[in-house]
Design a protein around this nucleic acid. Structure first.
Length: 271
DNA sequence: ATGGTCGGCAACCGA
């Protein structure tokens, strides 16, 4: 089966449900992972997604902040929510696709919203940065994020770190900016290597080429300045390394009316 | 070099 999978930090799913519908109608992902839904599960626009053909929905929302969701055309068999750093923040949800999904072998999908980390890149002065670093350490040590040789696992989300030099518009100017400090980049890459994950974007686009998925709201002309960062990621386990058929970033979405500051990132996999 | 803008939700906090 050909699986189209999208991750998108929507920055309020209720406010931007029409943009989500617009995206869905053009890209038609089988599975859509959202972050920063910013609403409790009862307020999630379930009916709208069902009308759009997404019958299978897993939610981990909270009031006003964070919140992740997986909406799917394909049935999944189980869901799981993990907490990190002893907080009840809604920053993770995972589902497993099995026989019902009519795929060759089972597939597990993790959807993450890693803490942004505040402004000051010092864990002593800034508890939010400390939280981010601890969160990444816990991800690295998290057993379910260590797929075994034949495990077909996918990890997506707003990981809030742009780990490589050309994942940001200026490596030099962002070295002390949270999201691209060496310690965060190191820790995110440690999560990646501990689980033997393959970063799809960098499998498809050479490290020497700029790739962005986020542009700040605080810039007058985001497209002319193009001061972006690659904060949104799709990783697959080794067993899925040869299954990637396509990868795309819907950059246009940043220019839609009342956009999210993140754009959708999509992978097509033969599963 | 600094400040710039969003969203939730009702004064600021988080990004």
């Amino acid at each position: 089966m050909r699986l189209t999978l999208t991750t998108w930090n929507i920055n309020s799913v209720r406010l931007r449900i029409d943009l989500v519908a617009k995206f869905i109608k053009s890209v038609r992902p089988d599975v859509l992972c959202l972050q920063e839904t910013k609403c409790v599960d009862d307020a999630f626009p379930l009916k709208r997604f069902k009308r759009l053909g997404y019958e299978h929905i897993a939610l981990n929302g909270q009031k006003g902040y964070h919140g992740v969701a997986i909406v799917s055309k394909i049935p999944f068999e189980s869901r799981d929510v993990r907490t990190f750093c002893g907080k009840v923040d809604s920053r993770h949800i995972s589902v497993s696709f099995g026989e019902q999904a009519q795929i060759a072998k089972p597939l597990t999908l993790h959807n993450f919203y890693v803490p942004a980390g505040g402004d000051i890149p010092d864990p002593v002065l800034n508890p939010k940065f400390e939280h981010k670093l601890s969160f990444l350490d816990e991800m690295r040590d998290c057993e379910p994020l260590h797929p075994k040789a034949n495990d077909r696992h996918i990890l997506v989300g707003d990981l809030n770190v742009a780990p490589h030099e050309h994942d940001v518009w200026s490596h030099k100017q962002l070295l002390k900016i949270v999201s691209h400090t060496p310690i965060e980049c190191e820790k995110l890459l440690a999560v990646q290597s501990q689980g033997d994950w393959i970063d799809i974007a960098r499998q498809r686009v050479p490290l020497s080429e700029k790739v962005y998925t986020w542009w700040s709201y605080r810039s007058a002309d985001w497209t002319a300045a193009n001061k972006g960062r690659r904060l949104d990621h799709i990783w697959v386990s080794k067993a899925l390394g040869d299954s990637v058929r396509d990868f795309k970033i819907t950059r246009d979405a940043r220019g839609w009316e009342r956009p999210s500051d993140h754009v959708p990132v999509t992978a097509v996999l033969d599963v």
